[in-house]
C-alpha cells in the first residue's frame, strides 16, 4: 500500500504547530498503525529529520498510553480498538490519513502527538481509591459481593485511562473517565464508606482541571476502546447530587 499522511507537528508546548504531509510507500496491510509510523520514523531519522513523537508502550491495547485522532476519530474508526491494535488492512491503498493529537486544554501538547494527561492522575488523587493501608485488610471472603455488582464494577474498572473520551467529546469533557472510576468503586461494598465524598471530590477536580461538562452526546462511549457504558455517568451524577444534598 502507498499512503499520504497529514500529521500534526508541534516542536513543543509553545510552538503553534501545523499539519505536515508525508508519503509512505510499501506499507504492508498486516502492519499495525504504529508500525507504519515506526517505518516512517526510521526514514526520517536517517534523513536527519525529527521523527514524529508519539506515546506508546504495551502495544497490546491495555496500557492506555497510545492514542491519536485518526481521520477525525479518536483511535481511528475501528471500534473497541486502541491505536496500537489498529491495523493497516482497514485503510484503502493511496488513502490520505489525517493524524492529530488529543485536543483539549487540560491535555496540553508536549510534542507532536504526545500530550500531557496528568490531569487524569489528579482526578484519581482527589478520591479515586479506597483508603486501606497494607496489611490491615480483613479476609477476602468476609464480605460477599453480588456477582452482578462485581461484574458491573469490573466493566467500569476496565478503563485504561487513554483519554479518547475527552478527545472525542465535543465539550472536551472527562465525564466518562471520572464516572468509570466512581462507578467501579460505588458498586462494591468496599467503596461505600467514601462513596459520596469521593464523587464530590473527583467531579470538582475534573472541573478544576478545565474539562468541559457532559451533554450526554455519547461520543465518548462510541470511541472508548473498552466500551465503558454511558450509564456510568448516570451513576456519577447520582452520587454527586447526593453528596451535594448532604
Amino acid at each position: 500500500m502507498n499512503l499520504t499522511l497529514r500529521v500534526w507537528r508541534q516542536s513543543g508546548p509553545s510552538d503553534a504547530g501545523r499539519m505536515v504531509t508525508y508519503r509512505v510507500e510499501e506499507v504492508s496491510p498486516d502492519m499495525s498503525f504504529l508500525e507504519m509510523l515506526d517505518v516512517l520514523n526510521e526514514r526520517l531519522i536517517l534523513e536527519g529529520d525529527d521523527p514524529i513523537a508519539f506515546d506508546h508502550d504495551c502495544r497490546e491495547g491495555i496500557c492506555g498510553m497510545c492514542g491519536m485522532v485518526i481521520n477525525g476519530v479518536a483511535h481511528g474508526e475501528q471500534r473497541a480498538t486502541t491505536t496500537c491494535q489498529l491495523h493497516m488492512r482497514h485503510f484503502e491503498d493511496n488513502a490520505t490519513i489525517t493524524i492529530e493529537p488529543w485536543r483539549a486544554a487540560p491535555f496540553p501538547v508536549v510534542k507532536d502527538l504526545v500530550v500531557d494527561r496528568s490531569a487524569f492522575d489528579r482526578i484519581i488523587q482527589a478520591g479515586g481509591f479506597v483508603s486501606v493501608p497494607a496489611g490491615s485488610a480483613p479476609d477476602a471472603h468476609s464480605v460477599p459481593v453480588r456477582k452482578e455488582d462485581a461484574d458491573a464494577a469490573f466493566d467500569a474498572a476496565t478503563c485504561i485511562g487513554c483519554g479518547a473520551c475527552v478527545a472525542a467529546c465535543p465539550n472536551g469533557s472527562a465525564s466518562l473517565f471520572t464516572a468509570a472510576k466512581i462507578t467501579h468503586l460505588s458498586l462494591l461494598p468496599q467503596g461505600q464508606p467514601e462513596r459520596l465524598s469521593r464523587a464530590k471530590a473527583m467531579v470538582d477536580q475534573m472541573d478544576a482541571e478545565g474539562f468541559g461538562g457532559c451533554t450526554n452526546t455519547g461520543e465518548c462511549t462510541a470511541v472508548c476502546p473498552k466500551g465503558i457504558p454511558l450509564d456510568t455517568i448516570a451513576q456519577m451524577n447520582t452520587d454527586y447530587l447526593k453528596a451535594n444534598a448532604k
Partner: peptide, 16 residues
C-alpha cells in the same frame, strides 16, 4: 466546552 478545546480538530468525525 469552548475553552476546554481551544485548538479545533482539522478533521473531526462523529461516532455517536
Amino acid at each position: 466546552a469552548r475553552s476546554a478545546r481551544p485548538v479545533k480538530y482539522v478533521a473531526k468525525k462523529s461516532q455517536a
